[in-house]
């Protein structure tokens, strides 16, 4: 690693050989109850603008296609003040697709840890919500709620762009939740 001078984007002061700080993550999970307050804080703090970092954790590509469709002239995500952010350091929310494959578990958690608080986690698609057809597979570490505190679930295989809009606006408290 040092030989080639490569470094993965790590948190400061952590070497890659160190085991992941599971305690931190457990604490984050315990804080799930506080996510309602986080949501309220996010609305107050971020106001109209909401920046999202996307992580593909093993999706089939259909969810990505629908997320990309949000940028097309029909949906135009930007008009709602929602943006896709390249850097997790600048992101307010994390959108995750896919059932969390084993190799994507660590990159996903590192992306989450690189995000400043408060941060929202949004599960996009059936796979991220429950594992979908891959639920229970030993090759899958998900669903997402097992690893991170999820604030909004957007089901669908894949969720249509309108479903995604509804979910993202729900995260911002700008639409009502469906009753069933």
């Amino acid at each position: 690693m040092s030989r080639t001078g490569f470094q993965l984007p790590l948190l400061p002061g952590r070497s890659p050989s160190e085991p992941p700080d599971t305690q931190d993550r457990t604490r984050a999970l315990e804080a799930k109850g506080a996510s309602e307050q986080v949501g309220a804080r996010v609305r107050r703090l971020f106001g109209g603008s909401f920046h999202l970092r996307h992580v593909d954790a093993g999706s089939c590509n259909a969810c990505e296609s629908e997320l990309k469709a949000l940028a097309n002239p029909y949906y135009d995500l930007h008009r709602l003040g929602i943006f896709i952010e390249p850097s997790p350091r600048h992101a307010d929310g994390l959108i995750v697709t896919g059932p969390i494959t084993l190799p994507m578990r660590e990159p996903l958690l590192r992306t989450y840890e690189a995000m400043p608080e408060p941060r929202l986690v949004i599960a996009v698609g059936t796979c991220a919500c429950t594992g979908g057809i891959f639920a229970g597979s030993e090759l899958v570490a998900g669903p997402l709620e097992r690893l991170l505190p999820v604030d909004v679930y957007i089901p669908g295989c894949p969720p249509s762009p309108l479903t995604l809009l509804h979910g993202l606006l729900l995260a911002l408290g700008r639409v009502e939740e469906a009753r069933r």
Binding site: T163, L170, A178
Partner: peptide, 15 residues
């Protein structure tokens, strides 16, 4: 054909 399916908790998605 309902599309407003998103929810803030798993419980709300289970009937």
């Amino acid at each position: 054909n309902e599309f407003e399916l998103a929810a803030s908790s798993r419980a709300r998605l289970i009937s």
